[in-house]
Design a protein around this nucleic acid. Structure first.
Length: 573
RNA sequence: CGGAGCGUGGCUCAGCCUGGUAGAGCGCUUGGUUUGGGACCAAGAUGUCGCAGGUUCAAAUCCUGUCGCUCCGACCA
C-alpha cells in the first residue's frame, strides 16, 4: 500500500473528548473517528488492525473445533420473551420497530437465536457436541458509553455457543474454549490472565473472565501472588476471620443516639463502638418487595454477590421513603432485631456474632448486646461482602492484592437454562429426550484492539505487536522524486517484501523526514526501513524496529533481514 | 437517571465576568526558500460562535429552553 493512496489522518493533538491514552492514540493515529457517542467509524488502518485480531480469533476457534456461522443483528422480540431476557436484560437492549410496528431487538448476544437453531437442527446425540461461533456487530444501549471502543453502543464481538449431551462433555467444551482464549490473547501480544468471574444476568454457574491488566480498566481483580488465585472482585472471597464471639450474655438494650446516622459517628465518643462490632443494615427492593441485607459495619456490600442470592435479577437500593414505610425509621437507625415478614440476608462474616450494635428502627436509637442468632431471624446466610486488598487468601493465607484490568473475554458454563426454555433437546442413546448442556464464550474484539493499544505504547505513539499491526513494515524514503535513487530502491524493496507476503506500506508522501518519522512512530509500525541519501551513498539502508535501535544494513540484504525479523516474530535482527 | 463542566474554522483553545461588526497556534491552498526527527517567508481560503426563543439601539458575551459532548456516581452479558 502507498501512503498517499490510503487515508491515515494523523493528528498532532488529540480531540478533547478522548480521555484515556489508548482512545487518544486510536484517534491520533487515524485508526477510528467518532460518529456519535459510543459509535465509531473504522478508518483503513484501524480496520486492518481489527481484521488481524479477528483472524487470530478465527484461527484459534477453528483449531478448537468451533464452526463459524453468522446470525442476524435484528432479532424478534418474541424470542427474547421466550428466554425471559426481554425483561432481565431490558436495560441494555436496543429496541426498534419496523413500519408495521413489529418489535425487534438489536442483538447484544445470540443465545436465543443459536439455541433455536440447535432446537431445529439437532435431534440426536450423534450430532453432538457442536460449538458455533460468529464474529459480528453487537449492540448495547449503554447508559454511559466511554473510553472510545472500550464501552460502546455498537461494537464487534466474537460469541460462541457449545452444545453437549452431558455435563462432562460441556466441561470439556469449556476447557477447550478456555485454552483457546489463552492462545488468542497471547497471540494478540497482550499480557492477560484468567480470573474466576461472576455470571451476571446471563446465568450459568461457572465462569472465567480474561483480563488485560491496565489502570484504566473497569474491573477490579483480586489476586494472590503466592498461589495464583485470581477472581473478579464481584466474585472474590478471602480467608478473613469471622466476627469474634464474646462471652457476654446480656439482653438487647436500647440506648439513645441522637443525630447518629453513620457507622463512623457511632465509633466516636461517647458511644465508641468499633465498626467491626456494628451491624450495617441495608434495604433493597427486589421484585417490588423490601429485603434486608446485614453486613458487618466495616464491610461493603457486594451487589454482584447479592444478585446471586436475592432470587431475582431486578433489584435496587430502596429509597428513604420506601425504607421508612418498611421499617418505620430512616437510614442510619435501621436494624433487623425483631423484624418479621421481611427477608433478611446476612453475610457469613456475622455468623456467631454477638455483643453487636445496630439500629433500633427508631430514629435516634440503637440496640446493643445484639446476638445475631438469638435476636435476628436470618432468612439466608450468604457471602455478601466485598473483598479488600490485604485480606488473607482463602487458599494459602498470603495477603491478597487488587488491580484494575480490562475484561476482554468471558467464558460461561451455561447448563440447560436456555436449552430448556427454547426446547433445544436431543434424543440420547438410551432413547430419552434431554436438553443440550450449553456453554457460551465471548470476546470483545474491538475492546481487545483498544486493550492492545492501552498496553503497547510509548511516548511517541502505538507500539504494535507484529501480530496485530495494520502493516508489519513501513518503508520511508526520504526523497520521493520518481527518479531519485532512494525512491527507486524503496519501490524495489516494497515490491520484494510484498511478493513475500509481508504487509508493507510505502510512505510516498512528499513530506519532510521529521513528519514521516513522527507519523510512523505514532501509528506504530513494528519495523521501519528508512532510505536516505547519506546511508545509501554507502550502499546501506536503515532497519528500525519500533521499540529497538537502528540497524544499518547493506541495501541488498534489507529484504532478507526484514523477512527474517517478521518471520521470527521480531526476536532479533 | 443524580452531581459537575463544556459546545467559537478540520484540531487545540482565547474572547464571555464588564454587550459594541470574531481571534491565535496547528492543519489546509498557492508561490518561493528549504530537506535525516512535526521547517521558514509571503499571500490566501475556511465561522449561521450547537440550536430555538427572550432582553437590548446592539448578543459569542446576559436570561430561558433545548440538543449534543465530557467527567464523577448509579448501571454493566
Amino acid at each position: 500500500m502507498k501512503w498517499t493512496q490510503t487515508l491515515i489522518p494523523t493528528l498532532r493533538e488529540a480531540p478533547a473528548d478522548a480521555e484515556i491514552l489508548s482512545h487518544k492514540l486510536l484517534l491520533r493515529a487515524g485508526l477510528i473517528r467518532k460518529v456519535a457517542g459510543g459509535v465509531y467509524t473504522f478508518l483503513p488502518l484501524g480496520l486492518r488492525a481489527l481484521r488481524k485480531v479477528e483472524q487470530i480469533i478465527r484461527e484459534e476457534m477453528d483449531r478448537a473445533g468451533a464452526i463459524e456461522v453468522l446470525m442476524p443483528a435484528l432479532q424478534p422480540k418474541e424470542l427474547w420473551e421466550q428466554s425471559g431476557r426481554a425483561e432481565t436484560a431490558r436495560d441494555v437492549l436496543f429496541k426498534v420497530k419496523d413500519s408495521s410496528n413489529r418489535e425487534w431487538f438489536l442483538s447484544p448476544t445470540a443465545e436465543e437465536v443459536i439455541t433455536t437453531t440447535a432446537a431445529n437442527e439437532i435431534n440426536s446425540y450423534r450430532q453432538l457436541p457442536k460449538n458455533f461461533y460468529q464474529i459480528s456487530v453487537k449492540f448495547r444501549d449503554e447508559i454511559r458509553p466511554r473510553f472510545g471502543l472500550m464501552r460502546a453502543k455498537e461494537f464487534i464481538m466474537k460469541d460462541a455457543y457449545s452444545f453437549d449431551t452431558a455435563d462432562d462433555g460441556a466441561m470439556a467444551s469449556y476447557k477447550k474454549m478456555y485454552d483457546a482464549y489463552k492462545r488468542i490473547f497471547d497471540r494478540c501480544g497482550v499480557q492477560n490472565f484468567p480470573v474466576e468471574a461472576d455470571t451476571g444476568v446471563i446465568g450459568g454457574n461457572y465462569s472465567h473472565e480474561f483480563m488485560v491488566p491496565a489502570d484504566t480498566g473497569e474491573n477490579d481483580v483480586v489476586f494472590c501472588e503466592a498461589c495464583g488465585y485470581a477472581a473478579n472482585v464481584e466474585k472474590a472471597t478471602s480467608g478473613i476471620p469471622k466476627t469474634a464471639t464474646r462471652e457476654i450474655g446480656a439482653a438487647v438494650e436500647k440506648f439513645a443516639t441522637p443525630g447518629v446516622v453513620t457507622i463512623e459517628a457511632l465509633t466516636k465518643a461517647p458511644y465508641s463502638v468499633p465498626a467491626n462490632r456494628q451491624i450495617k443494615t441495608l434495604i433493597y427492593i427486589a421484585d417490588s418487595k423490601p429485603v434486608i441485607i446485614l453486613i458487618r459495619g466495616d464491610d461493603q456490600l457486594n451487589e454482584a454477590k447479592l444478585a446471586g442470592v436475592i432470587g431475582t435479577p431486578i433489584f435496587r437500593a430502596a429509597t428513604a421513603e420506601e425504607i421508612f414505610a418498611a421499617l418505620g425509621a430512616h437510614p442510619g437507625s435501621l436494624g433487623a432485631v425483631g423484624v418479621k415478614n421481611i427477608s433478611i440476608f446476612t453475610d457469613e462474616r456475622l455468623r456467631g456474632a454477638n455483643d453487636m450494635t445496630t439500629g433500633a428502627n427508631e430514629d435516634g436509637f440503637h440496640f446493643k448486646n445484639v446476638s445475631i442468632e438469638r435476636d435476628i431471624v436470618v432468612s439466608k446466610w450468604a457471602d455478601l461482602r466485598t473483598v479488600t486488598a490485604g485480606e488473607p487468601c482463602a487458599k494459602c493465607g498470603k495477603a491478597l492484592k487488587i488491580r484494575r484490568a480490562i475484561e476482554v473475554g468471558h467464558v460461561f458454563k451455561l447448563g440447560t437454562k436456555y436449552s430448556e426454555k427454547l426446547n433445544a433437546t436431543f434424543l440420547d442413546a438410551d432413547g430419552s429426550r434431554k436438553p443440550c448442556v450449553m456453554g457460551c464464550y465471548g470476546i470483545g474484539v474491538t475492546r481487545t484492539l483498544q486493550a492492545i493499544i492501552e498496553q503497547c505504547n510509548d511516548k511517541d505513539g502505538i507500539v504494535w505487536p507484529l501480530s496485530t499491526a495494520p502493516y508489519q513494515v513501513c518503508i520511508t524514503p526520504l526523497s520521493v522524486a520518481p527518479d531519485n535513487a532512494c525512491m527507486k530502491l524503496a519501490e524495489k524493496i516494497y515490491a520484494e517484501l510484498a511478493a513475500r507476503g509481508i504487509e508493507v506500506i510505502l510512505d510516498d508522501r512528499d513530506e519532510r523526514p521529521g513528519v514521516k518519522f513522527k507519523d510512523a512512530d505514532l501509528v506504530g509500525f513494528p519495523i521501519r526501513i528508512s532510505i536516505g541519501e547519506k546511508s545509501l551513498a554507502k550502499g546501506e539502508v536503515e532497519i528500525k524496529p519500533r521499540s529497538g535501535a537502528v540497524v544499518l544494513t547493506k541495501s541488498e540484504e534489507a529484504v532478507e533481514k526484514v523477512a527474517a525479523l517478521v518471520g521470527n516474530g521480531l526476536q532479533k535482527v
